[in-house]
Design a protein around this nucleic acid. Structure first.
Lengths: 203, 203
DNA sequence: GTCTATATATGGATAGAC
DNA sequence: GTCTATCCATATATAGAC
């Protein structure tokens, strides 16, 4: 029961932090939105910043599983697209979290947290770089700038999933929900596949 | 002389807002960093929020000139790459500003400002979409998802120019300056050209 | 676990002297 | 134009009753 309430507070706070930014959200507004007493946040989490750290820590991808699963795919392109699909799924289902993470990485506040997130990002980045480098060595892929290629993958998924209002306007969708429905998820996966197919594959 | 001091305050505040976020920066810290009295900010700008609005407004791209210049290029691909280069140049020389703009577009604070920025973005977006659509109609370009294509262009440039700390780490650069030197600018322009060439051109 | 009341700090803004 | 002093609102955090 206590964990349920804790999780609920974390969910509410995650959304508010994503919408307004860490400093703009008061523990008063969190307690109001989550229908709990103000003092409960210090009681459960210790402080506003520790609450924030718990929000960040609870959803970071345990990337090991993905590494193992990607091994089951034969070609490097299939490995890469498998990973891309996993990232798209992950980002679609945790948009508020991703907004927080990318905003935090770009801030000079709480630098220990930014450093930690960047290191986490780097591990994922290196894993994907490695696949592409192997693909190039095996002549499956063209010789291209690997850093920019991996960056492009993250950049597209990040832009689409963490800038909902903008994407909604730019693509003439009626609502945010429409931007993130199953149809759009399929479309972005197909686009990524087409783009990287043309960019990487030798044929 | 008064405009010099105003401009200097705007420069300092822009950097601080980019580094720490709007709410985390106090007018006290701005006045300290800019070596002026606290009261001067209200005197010059009226309020912290009006100062912020002036920072945003002073650097938005007047896109009309670019439209005209892009007309001088023969192919749609050349038009597109001319625009991409202009955007890269612009983003490289105003990184703090771009950090502010993209962060602001993703916040539910000051929604009038976010709406304004998104509309500005949409005009640029539509202009580029239009070029690609024409290229497709003339069979210069393959038939692709135009929205995602334009998004990709902005996504790459945004990711590279507004996430300096991350890029520095991911690409093993010694310092931020190295991430944004002339050599790297050339490299990203070439990468964009290669990527969109493979993605768009029929040959 | 839950609540009220409060200690304490810091923020934006401005009045008014010079 | 520049500065000091101050008003007032709001923030986090916690002590202590229940």
């Amino acid at each position: 029961m206590a964990t349920d309430k804790r999780e609920y507070i974390l969910d509410v706070a995650e959304r508010l932090f994503a919408e307004q930014g860490f400093e703009a959200v008061s523990i008063r507004s969190i307690s109001k939105e989550a229908h709990i007493n103000i003092a409960m946040i210090s009681y459960y989490f210790g402080s506003k910043e520790k609450l924030y750290e718990e929000i960040i820590n609870r959803k970071l991808i345990p990337f090991e599983k993905i590494k193992q699963m990607s091994d089951t795919h034969a070609s490097y392109f299939d490995k890469l697209m498998f990973i891309a699909d996993v990232i798209v799924d992950k980002f679609f289902e945790s948009r508020n979290f991703q907004i927080l993470v990318f905003r935090e990485m770009n801030l000079n506040q709480r630098t220990h947290m930014a450093d930690f997130l960047i290191e986490h990002m780097q591990r994922n980045f290196l894993f994907i770089s490695d696949i592409i480098k192997k693909g190039i060595r095996k002549k499956e892929f063209k010789n291209t700038d690997v850093d920019f290629t991996v960056m492009t993958l993250f950049a597209i998924i990040r832009m689409y999933t963490t800038s909902g209002m903008m994407i909604c306007k730019l693509t003439n969708k009626a609502s945010i929900d429409e931007v993130y429905d199953a149809k759009q998820k399929t479309k972005i996966k197909k686009f990524i596949s087409d783009l990287f197919s043309a960019h990487l594959l030798t044929r």
